[in-house]
Structures are given as structure tokens and as C-alpha cells.
């Protein structure tokens, strides 16, 4: 049911000059990120900020992207829809965005951690994979 034009991202949207538009919601968010990052550096405590629950004026979300920027790591996951995991310009601050198969954002958060949980291989998946690998090995030995 994915018509070419029902995706919001396909509508060309002109972003207004962001600097002009901020009404002060971002400063508080950046201060919160800094506080969490300090705790991560000091005692390894991780934190996560749900962007879904925060009020943004139009343009502020885009401004946040500009402010945090793109760091060294950019990863993507393909599991019931794509996910984008980017380390920002500030190491330890990750931007994690999950999409569903229709391309809508279903979860959007800033994670302050060494590596986001979702990137790690899961024990259950490892055992399932191991079984498959064994089966494949056995199959190869037999043939």
C-alpha cells in the first residue's frame, strides 16, 4: 500500500532559516545532554532522552540535528523497517531513529552511552544463528 506520494518525506519541505526561529526549547535539551555526558564520562552511567515527548517548534528539530552534527559512526539496521544509528559530533552521544516499514518514525531518541543496546548482537539471536551455522557446517561436511 505504499503509494509513491503518501510518504511525508517525499513532499519537498523548505526549512526556514533555523537560527531565526528558535524560541528557546533547544538550550534546555543541550544542557540535559551535557549533564548526562558528564555522568557517562565520570562513572559510565548511560541515559536516554525520548525526543517523541519533547515539544519542538517548527525548525527546532532540524536545528538540533545541525547542532549535534554527524560523528564517526553511522550504522543502519534492517528489522521490521529501517533504523538509523548515528554517533553525533560529540562521542558518546548517539542519535537513534527507528522507522516502520512505511517509513514513519516510530521511536526517536538521543542515547548517551558507549554503544546503543540495539547495535549489540542479542544472545537469543546468537544461539539461533549458531544453530544455523552448525547445521550449515554439518551439511557441508556431509556433502
Amino acid at each position: 500500500m505504499n503509494l509513491p506520494n503518501n510518504n511525508l518525506n517525499s513532499i519537498p519541505i523548505r526549512i526556514e532559516d533555523v537560527a531565526e526561529y528558535s524560541i528557546g526549547n533547544l538550550r534546555a535539551l543541550l544542557a540535559e545532554i551535557a549533564a548526562h555526558l558528564e555522568k557517562l564520562a565520570r562513572d559510565g552511567a548511560t541515559a536516554s532522552i525520548d525526543l517523541h515527548s519533547l515539544p519542538f517548534a517548527s525548525g527546532e528539530y532540524e536545528q538540533l540535528r545541525l547542532l549535534l552534527g554527524q560523528g564517526e559512526v553511522a550504522a543502519s539496521i534492517e528489522a521490521i523497517g529501517p533504523s538509523e544509528i548515528n554517533e553525533t559530533r560529540y562521542p558518546g552521544v548517539w542519535w537513534v531513529t527507528h522507522y516502520n516499514v512505511e517509513g514513519d518514525i516510530v521511536a526517536d531518541s538521543i542515547e548517551i552511552t558507549l554503544i546503543p543496546e540495539i547495535l549489540k548482537s542479542q544472545p537469543e539471536d546468537i544461539s539461533t544463528g549458531l544453530e544455523l551455522l552448525r547445521a550449515q557446517l554439518n551439511g557441508e561436511v556431509q556433502s
Binding site: D50, H52, I77, A79, I80, H98, S109, I118, Q122, D125
Partner: peptide
């Protein structure tokens, strides 16, 4: 996969 399910749960949490 469990990872896919974790992602689903992240969506529900938010």
C-alpha cells in the same frame, strides 16, 4: 529476530 523485537519495544516504550 530478538533485535527486531527490541526495536518494536522501543517504539512502544516511547
Amino acid at each position: 529476530s530478538r533485535r527486531a523485537f527490541l526495536k518494536f519495544c522501543a517504539a512502544m516504550t516511547t
